[in-house]
Design a protein around this nucleic acid. Structure first.
Lengths: 336, 336
DNA sequence: CTGAAAGCGCTTACAG
DNA sequence: CTGAAAGCGCTTACAG
């Protein structure tokens, strides 16, 4: 009694061990109320036959999949660039899921059809819970998932009205620390390169920049990028054209800051003497730019970990805090 | 007739449409031999009830999962750094799988227990095929999978004796082009920072460097890194200590080259005047280093795509070429 | 503590 | 073209 793939079934193991299917099932699932001796016999049979439970059959009856989906809906340009966000989140999530013996199913959508496929897949009972790693605009997915009563945790505050539990970093605190530092060190014309304004991280960092400047009565000088280096380089050119006398720039991601640094070098501006630059992220690269980048550190891997922990809690019916905010920290290097 | 999760079943749809389960199943699966009118009736019922087939039930009978596993067995330091390899492969694979309506299941192992879990999972009938993205040493996983007759495609030539189909880039061609270029431009002491010597990419790039130098009768000067920036910076320091007069260095990855660039700057060496630097990868960052990096471009996303295409072919019973090698190309910028 | 039996939600020959 | 029925490989009350 083996499957088409040649794998032995519960039935086969039971026969070999001279017990019923039910007993083998209990042993395999670690039920305590099986006689020692029989347990040993079953275990031996399992071992000898290389038995592995068929997950589909198990899922069909238990209604559990032991899988968690991690959803990225993102354009090529960002995933493709060496943005640290994606691998960082994936890494954190996979660590926690690995410990919990859950499977990580990665769902990526690069198109509308892909979006629909993701909705079908997640609401189709393939996974026990969903992690949404990045959202653009008022993504309808979270609400759709909530309607199906699927446990969902978002990375970053969802922009849609639906209130779902999420994990985020203290964007405002980080940006405020950066701007205050610039102010304290005597910078007078502080510009910013903002992130995409359809993403909450982009929106919140820009808002925090504005608020921090308002307090100090400096005027804001803004260009918008999309978190890639190329966009940072272009935004810096625009900023320099808009205000040739700017003496500082807060950049909403390290990658964009890297692009801005190149533009500044090409324009003959010295960093930090002429222009101070502060990034956001503190990816490894920040230590290797010229000059090394002063930046706001956000704990991306930790964010992935917390998201995974929260969804696991939800899956097992425990309550979770609706909002988890992780600390950010200004890391001083040489660029400001 | 709905499931515990509240989702409607085939049975429920059939009842509503006034037909049998078999007929609904045929319509849902696109069987052509169902009367037009009945098809319409069924489709409407499906629509109205928001029916989505239960994948577990389907898998149980068809023995297909419509999922493909992508396996990474890697230390934290590499996944965690902003290495382009992982997201690039994931991106390429996910594009192809998305088009084929297959699911990407990401399997990561950071520990021995994780390794075992992956073997259990993949051989346990959860996926139709496996992609192994990076291997260290003579990883036993490929052989284990082959034993279970699971379709497997490797990224890079497997080091273990087992001969499995793989997709790779033309490592030797790329390295040779780099070294010859250095030679032609009159460099006399050409060092290398090699990748980890338990990975085939590390091994082959070093071997190609040696061969190319042998031909020219220059002696080799070698330091070994692990593909991270920090290791590149350290290796460069060692190289400078070993041979203060070196005038060129071929670095086996762009990230390590970035680290090497910083060390050279700290040591007061000008690039390319004093020391020419050539990297390998051509990730986005290479355009933004100071100076912009001359490097060997390898098509990582394309490699992911090809791996996915191959495994899909295997899954559907078609034959595949045992070896696919993608071209590499020397990209000239300012560092050499 | 152990087993017989029902049932999870599908697909697919087999009849008609 | 359509339906009744068997069966995929498990888990889990229910008896005993």
């Amino acid at each position: 009694m083996t499957t088409a793939g040649g794998r032995p079934t519960l039935e086969a193991v039971a026969r070999r061990a001279g017990v019923s299917r039910a007993t083998v099932s209990r042993v395999v699932n670690g039920s305590p109320k099986v006689a020692e001796e029989i347990q040993a016999r079953v275990r031996r049979a399992v071992e000898e036959m290389g038995y592995v439970p068929n997950q589909a059959a198990r899922t069909l009856v238990t209604q559990r999949t032991d899988s968690i989906a991690l959803v990225f809906t993102e354009q090529a340009n960002r995933v493709f660039s060496d943005d640290q966000y994606f691998p960082g989140i994936i890494f954190g999530v996979s660590q926690v899921l690995e410990d919990a013996d859950k499977q990580l199913v990665l769902l990526m959508a690069h198109s509308d059809a892909g979006h629909e496929r993701i909705e079908r897949y997640t609401t189709g009972g393939h996974v026990d819970g969903v992690l949404i790693a990045s959202m653009h605009g008022a993504d309808p997915l979270p609400a759709a998932l909530a309607r199906h009563r699927l446990p969902v945790i978002c990375g970053g505050r969802p922009l849609a009205r639906a209130s779902l539990p999420y994990v985020d970093v203290d964007q405002t605190g980080g940006v405020t620390a950066a701007i205050r530092y610039l102010l304290r060190s005597g910078r007078r014309r502080i510009a910013t390169i903002a992130g995409p304004q359809d993403m909450v991280a982009g929106i919140e960092r820009l808002a925090a920049y504005r608020t921090a400047l308002d307090d100090s009565d400096r005027r804001s000088i803004v260009a918008v990028g999309d978190f890639t280096r190329a966009s940072g380089a272009a935004a810096m050119r625009q900023l320099l054209a808009d205000d040739p006398h700017l003496d500082a720039v807060f950049v909403a991601s390290d990658l964009m800051a890297h692009g801005a640094l190149r533009t500044l070098r090409e324009a003959g501006r010295r960093v930090p003497e002429d222009v101070a630059v502060i990034g956001f992220d503190d990816i490894e690269m920040a230590q290797f730019t010229d000059p090394p980048l002063t930046t706001v550190r956000q704990p991306i891997v930790e964010m992935g970990r917390r998201m995974a922990e929260q969804v696991l809690r939800l899956v097992s019916g425990e309550p979770v805090e609706p909002v988890v905010v992780l600390d950010t920290e200004l890391i001083r290097r040489d660029s400001a």
